[in-house]
Design a protein around this nucleic acid. Structure first.
Lengths: 192, 192
DNA sequence: TGCATCTACCTAAAGCGATTAGGCAAACGA
DNA sequence: TCGTTTGCCTAATCGCTTTAGGTAGATGCA
């Protein structure tokens, strides 16, 4: 019985890779155990249960995304920052579809509050400093951007935009152009 | 052995209600059988398998959504149509969270092509007739709107906007104002 | 180095969901 | 009323999850 050296860390990391390979929904404790050539029960000293594993993968993904995003907006402002930030989301989703799905997983409020999700919101708000938005419009804009990044990535991974012209790449670029224009000219009062 | 009168139709309808009650992910053939006071195996004459059940629930949700949306945009144009259409998505998500989640389920290409999802795209495009968009910008806009509706509903149901000011209702209204303004003034060339 | 302790991984077992094969009896058509 | 159809059942298998308790390899201390 050679000891493999399981740790929560290693399990979560392998779980994230597994998610990218077979899909986040398909990540299972059994499959993970198989990867480590270990019996399933052995995982339970390192993770609480299957749900716990998935949550930890989600938290890892949120951290990775936040780190990349922080990198992307450092030293940038305005449209540069917006585009850099947005591309982090899209690229991450394409590079790591499983982790991206994990990042979209529903977390309970306390877990979410302690997650890197908070950094995401802060960074989004930081980007808006390059535009002239005051509260509460800044919050509305944060929510709009979150929805677009979340939604576009989801739809793209679900295959919504594939096999149809114009290609997804072009739409993405033009949507960012549009969002930039919108943020620079955010309507202050309902337009009748 | 009283016959309960199972049909695919009834199972799918009950499955949709079950989804709204306990969440789409939690919908299982076993639970559905329990609702009908029937053994699980009995379902298998009416549905191919568990995946098939979920797909059918998704298709039902897409139909319902499309019907409501068609109703909402009939006789309307411009911002009226946009707001009516958008509200259908949001309201449906709040009224029927399980079905809404089902509607966001990934479908394989052929199923998707035969689904009411096609009508959704057509209606979105119809709304844009009220704005001056020519191809390929119209397609970009369709994708943007899809992303926003999809993303906002997702985030809202995940609890992303709860317990923080300003309330989700207000953000939604202001986001629709912003989208209307954006569509009326869609940037034709990249803004440097 | 040798022993004691710790603990990483194991075996065993129970529970539940999915799925298939084959049976019986209720419904239905003639 | 008698077949035939078929709706729902029993039985069985399989995979994933989770818990309880055991064993041996790693670790620490004299």
């Amino acid at each position: 019985m050679a000891r493999v050296g399981l740790t929560t860390e290693r399990l979560v990391r392998a779980g994230a890779e597994l998610a990218d390979e077979i899909g986040f929904e398909q990540v299972t404790a059994s499959e993970l155990a198989r990867r480590f050539d270990v019996k399933v029960a052995s995982l339970y000293s390192h993770i609480k249960n299957s749900q716990d594993l998935k949550t930890r993968i989600a938290l890892l993904a949120l951290e990775e995304l936040a780190d990349r995003a922080a990198d992307a907006i450092a030293g940038r402002a305005g449209k540069d920052a917006l585009v850099g930030f947005a591309n982090v989301y899209r690229d991450y989703g394409r590079e790591h579809p499983g982790r991206a799905a994990a990042a979209r997983m529903r977390l309970d409020p306390e877990t979410a509050a302690a997650s890197a999700g908070v950094r995401h919101a802060q960074m989004t708000r930081a980007i808006l400093r390059g535009y002239d938005l005051t509260e509460p419009d800044a919050t509305h804009a944060v929510r709009l951007l979150g929805s677009v990044f979340h939604g576009y990535s989801s739809l793209e991974l679900a295959g919504g935009f594939s096999h149809s012209a114009p290609d997804s790449e072009e739409s993405w670029t033009r949507i960012l152009d549009a969002l930039d224009a919108l943020l620079r000219n955010w309507p202050t009062a309902p337009t009748p």
